[in-house]
């Protein structure tokens, strides 16, 4: 368990005078679930955006699997197995649920500069997409237009799409956002099943889920990592309790 899959060193990002990411360094061990918690506005989503290549940092380095990827764009990172999910669900509303996943399979299997053959009838794409849908429990909705499924199902679809890119490291930006208790429990089960296959960095407000899933927790406040450790250590850290956990409802 000592392989570091993602290494972040001295990451900085400011908007004007406001430092939203302030000298962030952290290691994500292969095979673990590393949770990032912190109050609203702590810069969690900005951090994910920089790790996924959507934003470029002002300073610092991101090393993934031994390679410096600080200046690699988002598609390049995805192709190396660094995928992300979005906090606000971003599905392709006009496509079917299956197509939403199949297009992600298509991105990594063969050229997409093919102009004649119908993509919808490519069994290889559809089979793999169907597998991902089964994995998240959405197979029975495969042929519905994606815009018509429920919010919880969209969260499942979001995960299926990320899985379809065959990630080694999954950056999950609040996968439970906006779900009800039943849906949340189901998604937590799903993530627990996935952890054996995929390393995850998890941003989540639901502390129950975080302490149930995480091997390691880092606390981000005003763009800085104020503490990092095992869930038990974080729970007992008095500084963290006053800085953050004390304010949260439902702290276990």
């Amino acid at each position: 368990m000592s392989d570091v899959l993602l290494q972040v060193r001295g990451l900085r990002k400011s908007y004007g005078a406001l430092a939203v990411t302030d000298d962030v360094s952290l290691d994500v061990q292969a095979g673990q679930v590393h949770a990032i918690i912190g109050p609203n506005g702590a810069g969690k989503t900005t951090l994910i955006a920089q790790l996924s290549g959507q934003l470029s940092p002002d300073a610092g380095r991101v090393v993934y699997d031994g390679n410096d990827i600080t200046h690699l764009d988002m598609p390049g990172r995805v192709r190396r197995g660094l995928a992300r999910s979005f906090q606000l669900t971003r599905i392709l509303p006009q496509l079917s649920v299956l197509e939403n996943v199949a297009i992600a399979v298509q991105a990594r299997s063969g050229s997409s500069f093919r102009f004649w053959r119908g993509a919808a009838s490519e069994a290889a794409l559809n089979d793999q997409a169907m597998e991902c849908l089964s994995e998240v429990g959405l197979a029975q909705k495969a042929h519905l237009p994606a815009r018509l499924i429920s919010h919880g199902e969209k969260r499942q679809l979001e995960l299926a799409v990320a899985l379809a890119t065959r990630p080694r490291l999954l950056l999950l930006d609040e996968p439970l956002a906006g779900t009800g208790p039943d849906e949340a429990a189901m998604l937590v089960d799903l993530l627990a099943r996935l952890r054996s296959r995929v390393t995850m960095m998890l941003i989540e407000h639901d502390m129950g889920a975080v302490f149930q899933l995480a091997d390691r927790v880092s606390v981000l406040v005003y763009g800085r990592i104020v503490a990092s450790g095992t869930p038990d250590a974080i729970r007992d850290d008095p500084a963290v309790r006053t800085a953050y956990l004390g304010e949260e409802e439902g702290t276990p």
Partner: peptide, 28 residues
Amino acid sequence: TRLTMSRFGRVLIGTREDALRMQAIGFR
């Protein structure tokens, strides 16, 4: 008609619907 239903057409439609999503699944 063939083109819009092909792999290429699907990617093009994807960029119309959500360009960021397309990048996040690995398309430049």
